[in-house]
Design a protein around this nucleic acid. Structure first.
Length: 721
DNA sequence: CTAGGGTTAG
């Protein structure tokens, strides 16, 4: 066996390894928290499934044992109570599910009961740790073993491979001899897989020679690993001739070679082998179908594609994650995007990120960029990075001059607060339409450059475009924010008289804001009283905000009364009023007290204090995905993301400050926002201390705030944006 | 009683 240690490392094995998807999920799963292991009523799915899968062994089984004794603090263990084979099956389960903490608890139990001398138990422990990605613990158990056997070395090798530590895996392999062991067939399959990942064909060939010498070729796992190794090393001739000569072939062997051919664009050949396989009496499974569908799609043979699809449905595999995605891909390849979308829809909640990406790719490549953008849902979530990614793809697909695509991109960038990118996109649209103009005007109006919004509006009209209701909303809002009250009034008139656009609630709300902001409180009130529609809360609110800015307590009370008549749960009203009373020195005003009382009742309603919410966020973002509230919080987050639009992504968490009393009133919203901001800034979530908020409109205040701007100490409270 | 091999998008 001297030749084993002669295996040369032709390539540097200290590769940095970003990790396959599988490894990443594995590592993620390793963050599984150590929680409530023995309380079955707590819905922690993995732990509970351990119990659920345990065979019933009344009185002697580990689960029953643990249930009776608690976490094991009693310490009074009788060795007989533990069944080794049962223990091993639990460890195996932990490894498979990534339940590191659960496995650790078992390790403790094993150590306490003195079972850590058992060879099989130790091997299972090494494997459990290795599979959970905790290679240090695996190594610790390994080093403490009184005698090293092949199986434990093998576990260590696959553990290293799992973590991308291929050089270490090779080191273990070359030490077999010095430990008095000989590699067995398991060792070779693992090592060959590593060579495949590294494209290390020289090493793979040496291992091949060993395999032949040791007569392991008849073991399908070994020969399949060899096959895959050659395929991954681009040595298809070697792979094919090996496959021809294989003494034993199973479904995995067939899948390996078919996949190899597919990966090297031998689609026809892959399909020929697929047929041969079926003729030889082996039925394809999900793995094989996935590749066959992909090959078929690449061949653009629509009849065969439909045939395969039918077969897959017959076997009940059409909605599986892999096969389902392959079907989407196949139909995209055939340019049958309707079928691709149909497949995606049929998958319902079985769809994954991958299947969605497949659909999007298909739509983009088939010229359905708008549908693709819809599928992205990018415009609804302010993520600057995904906007850029989408934009890059759009440019690559040569859609950046397209009118509709461009407008969608402008909207997306606007939500992220990046007005520069929005304008860049606009300038590249070859034939901008009204929607494009509206989008770019809105971009400036909402992102701190109202003057530019107004000048773009004028240019738009000069170019002969007919402004719509949305155009006016953006422009009036811009006028309001830049103090151009007179312009705003004129534009509002021309909207009705010149362009025949009838104002809606949002326009009225905007006009109230325009008047109120300039200090014309009485005029704003007049305006409200003269609207042809019944004033809504959204129309009254900017008046209240204006009163707050300009210290008009009388009209503030009047506006507050109207808002509360419509929306009695609007806590902002109470906050604004109580602040105004306080500032007016009416601290002990009975009315103020009553408002505060009401306020408390309201803030109690949602059910949790800001500390509770903050704790929940804490748990959620410290990867405790099993927290029973995490789904709810996530939904809330998405909601809040919509609300605060691009702010989280365009502000610096450090420069934000919270007014603590306001936190108490609007705790939930703020806590969630803060969690989001910290997340966006790549910082751990902390209890919010340094966030400053406009006391009237809930929004964050900050000097270099791109999205939300302030003039003369006020802020742009209002509902219209 | 422990360990190994094949799949989807970007």
């Amino acid at each position: 066996m001297a030749s084993i240690s002669k295996i040369c490392l032709y390539k540097p094995f200290s590769l940095s390894f970003s990790g396959s998807v599988k490894d990443q999920t594995l590592l993620q799963r390793c963050n599984f928290p150590a929680t409530c292991i023995l309380r079955e009523q707590v819905p922690l799915k993995n732990e509970c499934r351990v119990f659920a899968q345990m065979p019933e062994r009344t009185g002697t089984g580990v689960s029953a044992y643990l249930r009776e004794t608690g976490t094991g603090e009693n310490g009074d263990y009788a060795r007989n109570d533990l069944d080794i084979s049962h223990l091993i099956s639990v460890l195996k389960f932990c490894g498979g599910e990534g339940c590191l903490e659960f496995g650790r608890t078992y390790h403790g139990l094993i150590a306490k009961t003195g079972l850590d001398g058992d060879e099989f138990v130790n091997t299972s422990l090494i494997d459990m740790y290795a599979k959970c990605g905790d290679i240090d613990s695996a190594l610790m158990v390994f080093n403490q073993m009184p005698r090293l056997d092949v199986a434990s070395c093998n576990c260590l090798i696959s553990g290293y491979a799992n973590c991308g530590l291929f050089e270490e895996a090779f080191r273990v392999f070359m030490n077999y001899e010095s430990w008095g062991n000989r590699p067995n067939s398991y060792t070779y399959s693992s090592m060959l897989a590593i060579c495949g990942i590294l494209s290390a064909i020289e090493e793979g060939k040496q291992l091949h020679a060993q395999v032949v010498k040791m007569q392991y070729l008849s073991e399908t796992a070994v020969s399949n690993a060899l096959l895959t190794m050659y395929c991954k090393c681009e040595a298809m001739a070697d792979a094919e001739s090996l496959f021809e000569r294989l003494p034993q072939r199973n479904i995995v062997s067939w899948t390996a070679i078919i996949n190899g051919l597919y990966q090297h664009e031998g689609f026809e050949k892959a399909m020929r082998l697929f047929c041969l396989m079926r003729e030889s009496g082996i039925e394809p499974n999900e793995y094989t179908f996935t590749i066959a569908l992909a090959s078929c799609g690449n061949m653009k043979n629509i009849d065969y594609c439909r045939l395969l699809h039918a077969l897959v449905i017959k076997k009940g595999m059409a909605l599986g994650e892999f096969v389902g995605t392959a079907l989407i891909d196949m139909y995209s390849e055939l340019r049958e995007t309707d079928d691709a979308e149909k497949q995606f829809k049929e998958m319902g909640n079985l769809t994954s990120k991958v299947s969605r990406n497949a659909l999007i790719k298909g739509l983009v490549q088939n010229g359905k960029a708008n549908e693709a953008l819809d599928a992205f849902t990018c415009a609804s979530l302010p993520s600057f990075m995904s906007c850029q990614q989408i934009h890059a793809q759009v440019v690559k697909a040569n859609f950046d001059k397209n009118t509709q695509v461009g407008s969608s991109l402008i909207e997306a960038y606007t939500r992220c607060g990046s007005v520069e990118d929005a304008e860049k996109v606009f300038s590249r649209i070859s034939a901008p339409d009204v929607v494009s103009w509206n989008s770019v005007i809105k971009a400036y109006s909402q992102n701190g450059n109202p003057r530019r919004a107004i000048s773009l509006f004028r240019r738009m009209i000069m170019k002969g475009f007919r402004p719509t209701g949305s155009t006016f909303l953006a422009v009036l809002s811009a006028c309001s924010h830049s103090g151009k009250t007179q312009d705003g009034l004129e534009i509002f008139q021309s909207m009705i008289n010149e362009f025949g656009v009838s104002p809606e609630e949002a326009h009225y709300s905007c006009m109230v804001d325009l008047l109120g902001r300039s200090g014309q409180i009485e005029k704003a009130l007049d305006f409200i009283n003269n609207t042809p529609i019944k004033p809504t809360a959204s129309i009254w609110r900017p008046l209240l905000a204006a009163c707050r800015c300009h210290n008009n307590l009388r009209i503030a009370e009047f506006a507050a009364k109207h808002i509360l008549a419509i929306d009695p749960n609007d806590a902002t009203v109470y906050v604004t009023l109580s602040n105004m009373y306080t500032e007016a020195g009416l601290l002990e005003n009975a009315e103020n007290q009553r408002e505060l009382m009401k306020l408390k009742e309201i803030t109690k309603e949602p059910g949790c204090s800001w500390i509770e919410v903050n704790n929940k966020i804490h748990k959620f973002f410290s990867r405790d995905r099993t927290h029973p509230e995490s789904e709810k919080i996530y939904d809330k987050l998405k909601q809040i993301m919509m609300l605060i639009k691009g702010t989280a992504y365009s502000t610096n968490a450090d420069s934000l400050q919270v007014k603590e009393d306001f936190c108490l009133y609007h705790s939930e919203k703020l806590a969630v926002c803060f969690g989001l901001i910290s997340l966006a800034a790549g910082k751990p979530v902390r209890i919010f201390k340094n966030l400053r908020v406009c006391t009237d409109c809930h929004m964050f205040m900050n000097d270099n705030y791109r999205f939300h701007h302030f003039n003369e100490g006020g802020c742009s409270c209002g509902d219209y944006w």
